[in-house]
Structure formats: structure tokens, C-alpha cells
């Protein structure tokens, strides 16, 4: 792992974390995508080797390690699938709730809480 890769992964993670804290859900999804790419970059960076491709190497040649490359490819595929799922979820949420801002979603949660109030009031009445 050299400095360039470490800085790149750190910058990606920082941008992703910043986006994650936004109000708009699409930016939150973008933040999660950046964070998963930061993990993939760390994976590649921690397995850097120099050498020929390991298809049919000569006996005394350095061969680059294929395992981190396979791990990174799998991580990318999984990241694609989860990003697709998250986008579909945010799309559905936007359609159903007609808003993409999550403080308004929280307001709807608060409405549900207030509907529980009569039950709690009954509990308090019975206790006294």
C-alpha cells in the first residue's frame, strides 16, 4: 500500500461520509456508493504486487497475485447489486411519500408515535 492509494481511499471515504450526512436520499445513496468504492480501492492497494499475469508463468519470474484482483472484482459486482437495490428502494420511497428529504420522513414517523399516545395514556391511568 503506498501513499497515493491510501490518500485516494481516504479521499473517497471522506467524500462518501460527507454525502451520507445530507438530507436528500439520492446523495445518501451516492455516499454509500463512494464508501464501497473506497473499500474496493483499499482491497486492491493492500494486494499490490509486481509481476507477470499468472496465466502460465516462467519458473523464476515474479508473478502478480491473482487473489486480490478476484476479491476486488467480486466486491465490485456486489457493490453494483446493492447500489441497484438501494436506488430501487429510494425510487419507491420517493414515489410513495412524494418526498426525497429524510426529515420529512422523520415527521411521518413522529405522526405514528403520536397515534400511540392514547395507549400510553391508558397505561398511565391504570397505574395511578
Amino acid at each position: 500500500m503506498n501513499l497515493a492509494f491510501a490518500t485516494g481511499a481516504a479521499v473517497l471515504f471522506g467524500c462518501g461520509a460527507y454525502l451520507l450526512l445530507h438530507r436528500d436520499l439520492f446523495r445518501v445513496v451516492g455516499g454509500i456508493a463512494l464508501i464501497s468504492q473506497a473499500a474496493t480501492l483499499t482491497l486492491i492497494a493492500s494486494g499490490l504486487t509486481r509481476g507477470r499475469a499468472p496465466i502460465s508463468p516462467e519458473p523464476n519470474e515474479p508473478v502478480s497475485d491473482p487473489v486480490p484482483q478476484a476479491l476486488a472484482l467480486t466486491a465490485l459486482v456486489i457493490g453494483l447489486a446493492t447500489l441497484a437495490l438501494l436506488l430501487a428502494l429510494v425510487h419507491r420511497l420517493t414515489v410513495v411519500l412524494r418526498t426525497a428529504r429524510h426529515d420529512e420522513l422523520a415527521a411521518q414517523e413522529a405522526q405514528h408515535e403520536s397515534r400511540l399516545e392514547p395507549d400510553r395514556q391508558r397505561d398511565r391511568d391504570e397505574a395511578t
Partner: peptide
């Protein structure tokens, strides 16, 4: 038909 206004962050 959503007519979402520009998001204010």
C-alpha cells in the same frame, strides 16, 4: 407529476 422543488441542503 411529483414537481419536486430543487432540494435545499
Amino acid at each position: 407529476d411529483l414537481a419536486v422543488p430543487p432540494v435545499d441542503d
